[in-house]
């Protein structure tokens, strides 16, 4: 029972003999100074730990990371610019090569055309010469053939008349044949 008395005394105004709270412990004035005292100590400790150590450290880490990200982005932009430059140069080289190829092609084509024209002209001239020559020969042949036809016709006519028993005058026959040939 002695212990109970001590317990009762220790409990004070806010705790009953059974160790249970009397009313709301939140309203027990006996405990307020103690709570306030330790709260102030705690807040001061937390404030100094945070403001002296933790917050500057985190701020510097965040700033460093931001710096690293900014650097990386600018490096990436630089690389992108270089790649774009390389692409432009490549495109330019490609266009140049294409233009040169076209120029060479054009030049070759013109040369070939000139040669071809020349050869064509030459061939045309030759063909014309040959044609004129041939025409001449043909005309000659035609003329001689016409004379031959006349001669043959006259001779044939004479022969036919002879065969029929007529002695015809040679000049009459000739004129008759000539007349017929003309007619």
């Amino acid at each position: 029972m002695a212990t109970e008395t001590t317990g009762h005394e220790a409990a004070g105004a806010c705790v009953d003999a059974g160790g249970s709270a009397i009313g709301m412990p939140q309203l027990c004035a006996d405990w307020i100074p103690n709570q306030v005292f330790w709260l102030i100590i705690t807040l001061v400790v937390i404030y100094f730990v945070l403001s002296r150590i933790a917050l500057p450290r985190i701020a510097s880490v965040l700033a460093e990371r931001q710096g690293a990200i900014t650097n990386d982005i600018s490096a990436a932009e630089e690389l992108k610019r270089q790649a774009e430059e390389a692409e432009t140069a490549y495109q330019k080289a490609l266009a140049d090569a294409r233009a040169e190829a076209q120029a060479i092609g054009e030049k070759t084509r013109t040369e070939i055309k000139a040669q071809l024209d020349e050869a064509t002209q030459e061939a045309d001239a030759r063909i014309a010469a040959k044609a004129a020559e041939s025409e001449k020969a043909i005309a000659e042949i035609r003329d001689s053939a016409a004379q031959n036809v006349e001669i043959v016709a006259k001779e044939t006519a004479e022969a036919i008349l002879a065969a029929l028993g007529h002695q015809a005058d040679k000049s009459a026959i000739d004129s008759a044949v000539d007349n017929r040939l003309k007619g």
């Binding site: 220790a10 709301m24 412990p25 100074p33 103690n34």
Partner: peptide, 22 residues
């Protein structure tokens, strides 16, 4: 239900004073 809010000394069982470790 309110017993959990009782402030008590960690060492011994005296009065809860200003500097008592509770």
């Amino acid at each position: 239900p309110m017993d959990q809010f009782i402030v008590k000394p960690l060492f011994g069982h005296g009065e809860v004073g200003l500097f008592t470790i509770t």
